[in-house]
């Protein structure tokens, strides 16, 4: 065991105490009224019907961070992690790369976050990858593979404590809010699946696909066909199926119908949980404001 490792171990042990002091007080932050949040939802949901899923927004997105908010939190967290790692004895060359995206990566990730919600929807992706998701940068794997295990011990502890510190005073509230958002998301998904308008759209899509020689009752049956998933690479048959699937999604207007119905059910569930969701949004806003003033 090296002396540097001993120092790092000691610092990791005291991190929970040291980092709590770094968070700024949440009391001096303006939070939007619930009316403002309501307006934001209406604005966002008005544009939710898109020809493809690219750039799709759903009402529940009002309760997730925007790309700019993500960047503000990411930059604040990154500087905290660098300080933490330095005090744990890592030099600058041992700290990078950290798993924080650039502004462009944040923007792209937020814009495409619903791209696979209704499985493959883009003709070019279907023609190249079938139902498989195209390979994207795996920031977590890059982060792990760029560091020794000893470095990772320190960096993951620093990342974890930084997240805790940025949660300011209400880590439990943030977690409960995220869980509620997740529940609304799954609830609206299944409500849309049971909605007759979606059932009709699935029937039209299924007939279209049958005419092309493929037999599936619903889009996720085609996506989840076990024949595709025994391999990491799409077969010719998988690609042919996915191409016909996307063509039928487009010709029957499936995704605009499906996403609009899902958006409706999200809005219903959001209205049922308005107070809790607005309180969660206020916590997110406080987190962003605190990150912006901390730098």
């Amino acid at each position: 065991m090296t002396a540097a490792r001993l120092v790092r171990t000691a610092v990791v042990l005291v991190l929970p105490v040291a980092l709590v002091g770094c968070g700024s007080a949440p009391g001096d932050v303006a939070v939007p009224s619930s009316d403002a949040a309501g307006e934001a939802i209406q604005v966002r949901s008005a544009g939710s019907v898109a020809p493809r899923t690219g750039g799709l927004t759903l009402p529940l997105d009002a309760y997730a961070l925007t790309a700019a908010e993500d960047q503000a939190l990411g930059r604040a967290a990154e500087s905290r992690v660098r300080e933490c790692a330095a005090s744990a004895g890592l030099d600058a060359t041992q700290v990078g790369p950290l798993p924080f995206g650039t502004a462009a990566e944040s923007a792209a990730a937020v814009a495409t976050r619903h791209d696979r919600r209704y499985a493959v929807a883009d003709p070019e992706i279907a023609a190249t990858h079938g139902y498989h998701p195209p390979a994207t940068a795996d920031v977590r794997r890059e982060f792990h593979e760029a560091h020794t295990d000893a470095e990772l011990e320190v960096l993951v502890a620093c990342l974890s404590e930084t997240t805790r510190a940025s949660a300011a005073s209400d880590e439990a509230g943030l977690r409960a809010g995220a869980e509620l958002v997740s529940e609304v998301q799954t609830g609206a998904w299944h409500a849309a699946m049971a909605d007759p308008r979606v059932a009709d759209a699935f029937a039209a899509w299924s007939s279209c696909l049958a005419a092309a020689g493929f037999d599936y009752a619903a889009p996720m049956e085609a996506n989840d066909d076990p024949r595709w998933w025994a391999s990491d690479v799409a077969s010719a048959e998988e690609i042919a199926t996915a191409v016909a699937d996307v063509a039928c999604k487009q010709s029957t207007g499936l995704i605009p119908v499906w996403s609009a119905v899902e958006a409706e059910h999200q809005e219903t569930l959001i209205a049922e949980h308005r107070a809790e969701l607005d309180a969660y949004r206020a916590l997110l806003d406080a987190q962003v404001a605190s990150a912006s003033t901390a730098r």
Binding site: P99, R116, R117, Y118, A119, Y131, H132, P133, R140, V156, A157, L159, S160, T163, R175, A178, E179, S182, Q185, T186, W189, H190, M220, N223, D224, W228, W229
Partner: peptide
């Protein structure tokens, strides 16, 4: 994992709805 959330999907290839398992 102390930093990343694990998102578990209903469908293959990260499609459809999901459950989140937050860090630690």
């Amino acid at each position: 994992d102390g930093y990343f959330t694990a998102r578990i999907y209903f469908n293959s290839g990260y499609a459809g709805p999901a459950d989140d398992v937050t860090p630690l």
